[in-house]
Design a protein around this nucleic acid. Structure first.
Lengths: 149, 149
DNA sequence: ACCTCTCGTAACTTTGTATGTTGCGATAAT
DNA sequence: ATTATCGCAACATACAAAGTTACGAGAGGT
């Protein structure tokens, strides 16, 4: 499985938007993330539906924060992305008939669920506002890396 | 990514082998796991290389445990499978130039590493021997579910 | 009105990994 | 010799993330 980088990317762009203040186009964002504008729209759609950002069509349009990042946690963004799978290790069957397989599943399920819960709990403790302030003010709307293009 | 079911499958078959005692062919194992004999050989190859099982070619051959399951943990088997990715959430770049992206990565990396470490630590506490004994003796070499074929 | 910028979305392609399948060679018991 | 078995390469399938193309729909500038 290629690992899912959407959360990382969305956090990245949200903090840029927070620090920049003005609306940003998918085009500009795609350069920040080194990807394609359509990928940006597709991924940000979840954040828009969840009310974290707004999108405006047409000339002068683009993306903007819909609310302060202070109350928004990493977990909120993860959920806005559709709560994708956290742990890559899975069980062979949902409802095994075999006693041995059931025992194996019980043992694994516990540990996997625990790791997932712990990760999500910690995601729930970190706000994007705090993360943004921890970086220090950045004046640019774009990454340092954006100039590579 | 389809979630990785190899660990679950290998635990399942190892405990069957433990309780059955005699060598088992890939063909029989594949029916237990509802998969293909070649998949069994491919996956078990890692366990053989790590010394947990032996394989014997030719008529009357098959797979057998190379040692007691008492000292073998779930983590050992995970490592014998090549230590596949545990957490499906990943970082966008390895070495970001952007300060914001670096901050995001630092925040995520920590939590992801913690979840992974915790999961592996708990895998390291469970031995296959204990798991096998927790099931109670099963006389059959095959799953209850194997008769479905 | 027309043009251009922008998002929305469907459809398709690409990539990476686990999984499934086929074929053939090697080995060993009968 | 025949049969049962593993080893392995090669190819096919499934699935999700990511990348790309194409076109339609708004909205501002001229």
């Amino acid at each position: 499985m290629p690992t899912d980088t959407r959360l990382s990317r969305m956090l990245h762009v949200l903090i840029h938007m927070d620090q920049f203040g003005a609306p940003v186009t998918s085009e500009v964002i795609s350069r920040m993330l080194e990807t394609h504008p359509v990928v940006v729209r597709r991924t940000m759609a979840g954040l828009r539906d969840a009310g974290y950002v707004t999108s405006v069509k047409g000339h002068g349009g683009g993306w903007a924060l819909a609310r302060s990042l202070d109350g928004v946690t990493l977990r909120d963004i993860h959920e806005a992305l559709g709560s994708p799978t956290v742990v890559a290790i899975g069980l062979a069957e949902d409802n095994p008939l075999c006693r041995i397989e059931r025992a194996v599943h019980d043992a694994l399920k516990d540990v996997i669920a625990d790791a997932e819960q712990r990760l999500l709990a910690r995601f729930g403790e970190v706000t994007l506002g705090a993360l943004s302030r921890s970086v220090g003010a950045a004046v640019q709307p774009r990454c340092d890396g954006a100039s590579r293009h």
